[in-house]
Design a protein around this nucleic acid. Sequence first.
DNA 1: AGACCTCTTTACATCGATGTAAACACGTGG
DNA 2: CCACGTGTTTACATCGATGTAAAGAGGTCT
Lengths: 346, 346
Amino acid sequence: MPPRPRIKDVAKRAGVSEKTVSNVINDYQHVSDATRRVVQEAIDALGYRVNLAGRHLRRGRTGMIALVVPELDVAYFSELAKLIVTEAERRSYTVLVHQTGGRRDREIAALSGFDSDFADGIILSPLSLLPKDLRERDSRLPLVLLGERDASGVSDHVAIDNVAAAREATAHLIAGGRRRIAVLGGRTGDVAGAAELRTRGYREALADAGIPYDPRLVVPVHDFLWPPGASATEELLDLLDGGRPDALFCLNDQLALGAMRALHERGLRVPRDVAVAGFDDIAASRFSVPSLTTVAPDKDAIAVTALDLLLSRIEEAAKGGNAPAVERTPPHRLLVRESSAASGAG
Amino acid sequence: MPPRPRIKDVAKRAGVSEKTVSNVINDYQHVSDATRRVVQEAIDALGYRVNLAGRHLRRGRTGMIALVVPELDVAYFSELAKLIVTEAERRSYTVLVHQTGGRRDREIAALSGFDSDFADGIILSPLSLLPKDLRERDSRLPLVLLGERDASGVSDHVAIDNVAAAREATAHLIAGGRRRIAVLGGRTGDVAGAAELRTRGYREALADAGIPYDPRLVVPVHDFLWPPGASATEELLDLLDGGRPDALFCLNDQLALGAMRALHERGLRVPRDVAVAGFDDIAASRFSVPSLTTVAPDKDAIAVTALDLLLSRIEEAAKGGNAPAVERTPPHRLLVRESSAASGAG
DNA sequence: AGACCTCTTTACATCGATGTAAACACGTGG
DNA sequence: CCACGTGTTTACATCGATGTAAAGAGGTCT
């Protein structure tokens, strides 16, 4: 089989210059119809396709963006990845996927494109990144942060209003007659991560209802997955002297599903004995038994907004601009399902 | 801020030629320690990082592989994607992710690298691709197919033994006293897709046990997701004259979870009234209520094998070789959980 | 006819890194 | 002392596409 044809070969065959072929490929305005036709025929005949390495080198842009998430198999991130890949494709960008495992060193590496300048921009969903890491970043690579508060105002940021969302979810549980509401995955402290913000919203809702805050009900977990959800639940159920919760607000859906599993094993009924609410609205939550009440971030909006921001940053960077960082807050809503029906007695 | 340094700048600063810098970067053997040190210092001082576009153009390889799956948010694929991305990274490759939505035209486009020659190789998990599409493929881009039978022997292929796995799962249900076993997502026909192969295994198990085959119990579905699982189940439960199934063998776990949800809504208990088994062993299946019996393909082995094959193909292609297509069959095992406990009466 | 436009096409340099092949340096053995 | 080998460094061409600037073609207006 012959080697892949190059622009040179197309030019030769069409009897025009290489630049004219390039002009046809790139839809340059001033190309006569006749020339265009001849060139196109040569392209088709030879089966020519542009060599992206050459184009990238010359243009200085790759047409790729990096998507960096903690783990691809965590439903929230895979659902988001799906949307971002799809949306990027619509805009003629290809997505490179990296995983950090939530490790700070990996997240820092991502900030500067993993020691290469390959992607035109980065969408990063950090877990452990500190504000100072952002401030100390020396890369000019366009960057959009997802989901965690960008305390430094250093880069564009897209996240729902975590405090408000958590407050609504907690208020909903309270409205259902629950009083001892635990937070799985909760964390207090001044790091402004998703866990802290959601915990803050929870405390605000308690305060609104005049319910005293019991720190024993805030259970940090290491991974936001099923098993920690189950074990945190076990732990809570062992609380004595009336400390046992009548509701679990889980900071993501996997924790909630793990929790429901543990409740089931203890013979407790959801929502009769314990109400459960989650966060993220992953697809599985609609079909669990019982179905899970959860906060649904508008993932489409998140994906579209992140790409809008990133691509306009890329535009801007090409022109040498440097506009101030932007903060976007896509909507969310509370989806009430079976797991949080009002308690009978109260 | 100064522009990004190039090899030229490093060379100037270190007082050596550009090629020597390149040699240092690429760990070329014959570089004196003194030179190496000087160059490394210049690299560090300037914060030099290779420009991949330049390297790619020169080398003719990009260091990227494309992973093409139907949908990233389908748990089986996102779990696989996680493993493949991780494994590729270990081998210094970066992964480009594409989604086909299971559409044949997209899968065909993937076969030749989506009209660009960007990736060094492709891992494709097809749903609708036909054997003839493979035979007609004119690209020499290294390719590994996942999960569907490569009837044509045209390219490397990695898949578990779907027939045997389905046979084991079905036999397990039969051993638990079930006699009317439905197949959700089943399909008869001669296309050798996963659905057909698994259905074949199911029929073999029935034959082994001397149970007559009832075509009404084979319910094709369009998407392998929860809602079709639920609606197919509704349909089966409406079967009259003793046609109602006492077990559901679902060709993936999402179908199974949707089915369990539908059973729950009809007031049927799993496994007492109806046993359920799935396929794929997605993480959620371990924590559903009841937990789901399922066939667990060895996903690690699949990921590692696919990368082994692909990378050696890439090696080989660089040398102009052309070894015959390879077929690999990673192991699988049946995970028996709550959803398929033996029926009481029988 | 000549000056001047606009539209189309082209020659050439360039993006950054690296393979090739040759030059250079330093020993060793005859 | 010179030929030769091993190890190290370098000049130069090259990968493929495209931006720049200028040349060519054809027409209009005076």
